Computed example of a mutant assay.
Amino acid sequence: MLSVTDPALAGQPFLAAPNEMETFLAAQLTAARQGTETAPSLDARQETVVLLALSAGLRLSVLLGQRGAQDATAVLRYRLGRLFPAD
């Protein structure tokens, strides 16, 4: 969802290469964990799967009219806020 709504991410080839996206996201989460931006117990690979599945489910719910893009974005931001809590 953010790759569609965030101008900084709009040019990234996230949708064209799902395996590359999974590898990229896992690397980002691993780096965040090593930089102490997330909990030390974070399992980057598992969180990657959760985030990608969440994103896919939200896309479908928007396409089906179950929720709007802003609501879906709020859900994704909520999950990211849980991974990266503001102190």
Results as ranks from 00 to 15, higher is better:
residue 2 L to C: 13
residue 62 V to Y: 03
residue 46 Q to K: 06
residue 36 T to D: 15
residue 82 R to Q: 10
residue 1 M to E: 05
residue 7 P to Q: 01
residue 35 G to M: 05
residue 81 G to H: 06
residue 82 R to M: 11
residue 59 R to A: 10
residue 3 S to R: 12
residue 54 L to H: 03
residue 15 L to F: 11
residue 9 L to K: 04
residue 39 A to E: 03
residue 38 T to A: 00
residue 26 A to E: 02
residue 25 L to K: 06
residue 57 G to P: 00
residue 43 D to L: 03
residue 32 A to D: 00
residue 9 L to T: 02
residue 38 T to R: 07
residue 5 T to H: 11
residue 79 R to K: 08
residue 63 L to N: 13
residue 87 D to Y: 12
residue 78 Y to F: 15
residue 40 P to Q: 05
residue 20 E to Y: 06
residue 70 Q to G: 15
residue 61 S to I: 03
residue 82 R to A: 14
residue 57 G to V: 04
residue 8 A to Q: 08
residue 71 D to E: 13
residue 24 F to G: 05
residue 5 T to C: 06
residue 1 M to Y: 04
residue 12 Q to V: 08
residue 50 V to C: 10
residue 68 G to V: 04
residue 23 T to P: 09
residue 7 P to M: 08
residue 2 L to Y: 00
residue 64 L to Y: 15
residue 68 G to I: 00
residue 84 F to Y: 00
residue 26 A to C: 00
residue 20 E to W: 02
residue 18 P to K: 11
residue 30 T to K: 07
residue 83 L to C: 08
residue 72 A to L: 01
residue 53 A to Q: 14
residue 16 A to M: 01
residue 68 G to N: 09
residue 68 G to H: 13
residue 85 P to K: 06
residue 70 Q to Y: 07
residue 45 R to C: 04
residue 9 L to M: 01
residue 87 D to V: 13
residue 54 L to R: 12
